[in-house]
């Protein structure tokens, strides 16, 4: 084992593994966005801002009210799920028959609202949970426990969604809607209700992501901007509404960011990821997993 590790640069391997760990959370974010796009055919530009609100919820419950992390987490997930449902009910539902771009821009307005709400309510200070999780040493490599935990929780979350989508009547209906909206009523499915459920589910995933991200990052009103764009790129590259594509693209991007970050700042990892994205558009314009016609 040691001999094998010697061949490779130890830091390179560490970065690769950290990339995989980051990929879990990104995949979770992409899944939520893809779910909503796949079912309702809208893109929530403000998705990352929902995560931001969730991070604040965690911060206040844990730091301010002294709740334990594991008790605060379900509440946060519920809260953001509720926000998701509310977003659909108040903003998307009135626009369902409007041109798609209008729906998208309306969620852009919500992005403004959430960001500035956070600024007004919580100020622009950076805040963190103050939980310092230990660092795991493996050979000469160090892995943050927080990342490992996030990765595992993200996986569990995604498996739960998978089971829900494949095993339950509601999950099956959610998968069916995008294939034929008109006849859903013949199945006894109330499409409006399904949209609300899907929005809540998408919100819940954002809430879960918030619980995980707050372990690693400080929360501030603009924190959504640091992972929102990358989530959109992942979804576009994976093909909007394509769960498997999004999953793979998440790990590809996470590796690029992590390896790019190895050589300089994390921000350059993002830039590299964007450059990669542009190149990929030339090679596979319809997305990573598009079927060739």
């Amino acid at each position: 084992m040691q001999a094998f590790l010697d061949i490779f640069d130890i830091y390179l391997l560490e970065a690769v593994i950290n990339g995989i760990l980051l990929g879990g959370v990104l995949a979770l974010l992409a899944l939520g966005l893809n779910l909503i796009f796949g079912v309702i055919d809208v893109t929530w530009i403000c998705y990352a801002e929902l995560v931001m609100i969730g991070m604040y919820a965690m911060y206040f419950m844990v730091q301010y009210y002294g709740l334990s992390y594991f008790i605060a987490a379900p509440f946060t997930i519920l809260l953001v799920a509720l926000l998701g449902a509310l977003l659909h009910y108040l903003v998307i539902a009135p626009l369902l028959t409007a041109p798609p771009i209008n729906q998208l821009l309306a969620t852009g307005g919500v992005l403004f609202v959430l960001q500035s709400f956070a600024t007004v309510a919580f100020g622009i200070d950076f805040r963190n949970l103050g939980i310092r999780l230990p660092v795991l040493a493996f050979g000469d490599m160090n892995f943050s426990y927080a990342r490992l935990l996030s990765f595992l929780a993200a996986l569990v979350g995604m498996v739960a969604v998978y089971l829900f989508m494949t095993r339950t009547f509601t999950g099956t209906a959610i998968r069916a809607i995008s294939q034929d909206r008109q006849i859903m009523a013949l199945m006894g499915v109330d499409t409006k209700r399904m949209y609300i459920i899907t929005s809540a589910l998408g919100g819940g995933l954002a809430g879960l992501a918030a619980c995980l991200l707050v372990l690693q990052y400080d929360v501030h009103p603009f924190v959504g901007l640091s992972f929102g764009p990358i989530t959109f790129l992942i979804c576009v590259l994976g093909g909007l509404g394509n769960f498997i594509g999004g999953f793979i693209a998440a790990f590809v991007f996470a590796e690029i960011i992590s390896l790019g970050g190895l050589f300089s700042d994390l921000e350059w990892g993002y830039v590299l990821a964007f450059a990669f994205f542009i190149v990929m558009m030339f090679i596979r314009p319809a997305g990573l997993l598009a079927r060739r016609r």
Binding site: P229, F232, V236, V271, F274, I278, M281
Partner: peptide, 29 residues
């Protein structure tokens, strides 16, 4: 690439959205 490969609608918005996000990142970085 966006226009050549008919990236329109949602896709175009998201790509351009990422573009402005990235420029911000570069300025910050």
């Amino acid at each position: 690439p966006c226009f050549r490969f008919r990236i329109t609608g949602h896709y175009f918005v998201l790509v351009t959205l990422a573009l402005s996000g990235i420029v911000l990142q570069v300025i910050t970085a």
